[in-house]
Design a protein around this nucleic acid. Structure first.
Lengths: 347, 347
DNA sequence: TTGTACGCGTTATCAC
DNA sequence: GTGATAACGCGTACAA
């Protein structure tokens, strides 16, 4: 029976352990806490640990938090966990935080500022030790609000313009340049861009990356070939693509700001019987799950969302260890994945 | 400045509110708590509420929880949030719980029993008021363990054999029958089944549904045409499909236990130049995101995971309100979505 | 109707 | 090295 865990439904507290080990609760607390264990006699400590093990003692983080003003909990705000971009980010955050004993507390904001406010206030009430958010747009007051409240803040996936705010994102600019360079190298001259909303750093930076890469490729971007869609969705992507084609600018390739927008383009190709990549090439961004199963398999930019999540968690741990440490911004290097939606221009 | 929220970084406590309203903390507590408000003078209550508002008071759930032994927090265990099946379930759970003031606390177990144990123990330590888990297999001791610990438990997506455990799942049996009936109605006689692991109720029930529907369609299931794959994955689906074909049973259609398995079949079709649905039809299960974008678009069974999540949350709230209420099991009606991976048998 | 006093489970600060 | 005690913020008997 030794080693058998007790399955008492009544919670066993520090007092119970202390009593079993025949020491004072204060001593038991020190013995159980790795940082203070050195203050207590080795032998006594062992006795306490054994008693704790035997009774199946689990320290009560609530009581601990009341005393220490820490909850070992980090609030994580995402627009919508249903968007396949976020689950791997969340896992990265969770896995890394867990190593240091922190637990994430997630909420979906649906890209609604007011909802985001409510959510982070709720989290604040729940005594989270910090907030990681993927919901901020470039000028979002939420960043300032949270910082002003004294809570450590880390942005993930999207940055805010202020470089003093910690952030872990893919290098959106470099990623889009990869895509455009690829199209240029295939021989395209009339390259269009369907951007995401410029309020988001992702949309903004990819747009900039597009312009840069074009110029470096010796191509002056044609304003007729640049459309900013209203959202990173298949629907808005399709709408933007239709307008692009209706303008008749003669594009032979499209650099889309994300995979869903690219998918919207696919829909329009079907509507208008356009051959991809024969008549028109498309590149996406994110390499979302199953991008390789689309028809045609989508050429896109892979961003490693899991690693982005891990990086965000690391920035948070940094801020937690030393709140006055210099805020860093991490940008992860993306990678081009060439599949079958891009080819040489027609003719 | 009235109505302006204070942005003090020092937390404001019940005491501060009481002082501002010139009452004792006890009174303030009663005024702030909806259930005890009636015990206090209407006017005084208003004064307290105004003070709380003005100071931006947020009750500390940690302190409250210490006193009341409730955290208003529900632990949610999923195998892997990265599996597209789970995000909508999670959102359903979150949205419904939120209405009643509860917050979910999620953890990924990677289908590892030991990890699940650790996770729920951690959650127990964090004083969650209940556990919703999507990780249980049919004979999983975790269900008994959690119940024994006195924590309300609800299973989601997967059941456990014991009907005394609350569960919200799709009606897997009925769903698979829908798929098989569809294939029968197309004229197929040699219908194969690639099942998921029978340890999971999902794999088990769909397998049963397959057998039932076959017999009702007047077809005796051929053991040669039934293969149970080792996991609900594309890879294992492909492996199973290869074995099925190698057996040479002459199947003209496959009822796959989920969409990923069906996708594995697609891979094998490509390897062996099999035309789908010309030579071989396939039906999946779940209607996962982008199932309509596969090549060919996948005929599958839609299960409404969001609603499954909502139902699970509702069962939990029920258990919370009345721990002795009769445990219910909810099975949501699935729906067949016919696309292009199924057609009449060849010849 | 309101004030008082205690306790929830822990940790920190003292003494010893 | 260990024990006693107070305190974290709140809820709630009980007293007034």
């Amino acid at each position: 029976m030794a080693g058998q865990r007790e399955m008492t439904s009544a919670r066993v507290t520090l007092r119970d352990v202390a009593r079993a080990a025949d020491v004072h609760p204060g001593t038991a607390s020190r013995a159980l806490n790795a940082e203070t264990r050195s203050l207590v006699n080795e032998e006594t400590a062992q006795r306490v640990l054994r008693a704790a093990e035997q009774l199946g003692y689990l320290p009560n983080p609530i009581a601990r938090g009341l005393k220490t003003n820490r909850s070992y909990t980090i609030g994580v705000l995402v627009p919508d966990i249903t968007n396949p971009l976020f689950p791997p980010i969340l896992r990265g955050i969770e896995d890394r935080l867990e190593e240091d004993g922190y637990t994430p507390l997630m909420a979906n904001t649906d890209n609604d500022r007011e909802r985001a406010r409510i959510d982070w206030q709720t989290m604040r009430a729940r005594q989270v030790d910090g907030i990681i958010t993927a919901t901020a747009d470039r000028t979002d007051p939420i960043a300032e609000e949270i910082t002003d409240s004294g809570l450590p803040l880390v942005l993930v996936n999207r940055r805010v313009d202020d470089p003093a705010v910690r952030a872990a994102t893919p290098d959106d600019r470099a990623g889009m340049r990869l895509a455009v360079e690829h199209l240029v190298s295939l021989g395209h001259h009339r390259i269009a861009h369907i951007g995401g909303p410029l309020e988001f750093s992702s949309g903004h930076d990819r747009h900039e990356g597009f312009l840069e890469a074009m110029r470096e490729g010796g191509l002056e971007p044609d304003p007729d070939l640049v459309i900013i869609s209203k959202a990173f969705t298949e629907l808005e992507g399709a709408t933007a693509c239709r307008e692009l084609l209706d303008r008749g600018g003669g594009a032979t390739a499209i650099a889309a700001s994300n995979d869903l927008i690219a998918l919207g383009c696919y829909d329009v190709f079907l509507e208008r019987s356009i051959d991809c990549p024969g008549q028109l090439s498309v590149a996406g961004f994110n390499d979302m799950p199953f991008a390789d199963r689309f028809q045609p398999p989508l050429t896109t930019v892979r961003i490693r969302p899991y690693e982005v999540g891990v990086a965000a968690a690391e920035l948070m741990l940094e801020a937690l260890r030393d709140p006055d440490s210099e805020p860093r911004q991490v940008q992860l290097r993306p990678e081009l994945v060439v599949r079958e939606s891009t080819g040489p221009p027609p003719g």
